[in-house]
């Protein structure tokens, strides 16, 4: 499974997005606000999800804002930093 596919799956599972199918999350869809509709609490949960499932650490929320834009940006960050 690609990083993007796995990301979509764990997002749905760990953020309890029961009403969303993985295909409905497009790679360039905004994760926060309009788009998938995540919020600030999801953002910090996402940090844990990325750590737990991909072993990649995100340290600073302010500096990391661009990483959280979409599945594309998040997957690129994970791939570049995976151990």
């Amino acid at each position: 499974m690609s990083v993007k596919e796995k990301l979509k799956q764990v997002l749905i599972e760990d953020l309890n997005l029961e009403d969303v199918e993985p295909d409905e999350i497009t790679d360039d869809m905004a994760l926060f606000g309009e788009g998938l509709g995540l919020d600030s609490l999801d953002a910090v949960e996402l940090v844990i999800i990325v750590q737990k499932h991909f072993g990649v650490e995100i340290k600073d929320m302010v500096e990391s804002r661009p990483i959280f834009e979409s599945i594309n940006t998040l997957a690129a960050y994970i791939e570049a930093n995976q151990p």
């Binding site: 609490l41 999801d42 844990i48 750590q51 737990k52």
Partner: peptide, 9 residues
């Protein structure tokens, strides 16, 4: 999963 994985939710 270790303290670093404490769930904020």
């Amino acid at each position: 999963f270790g303290y670093a994985c404490s769930s904020p939710t």
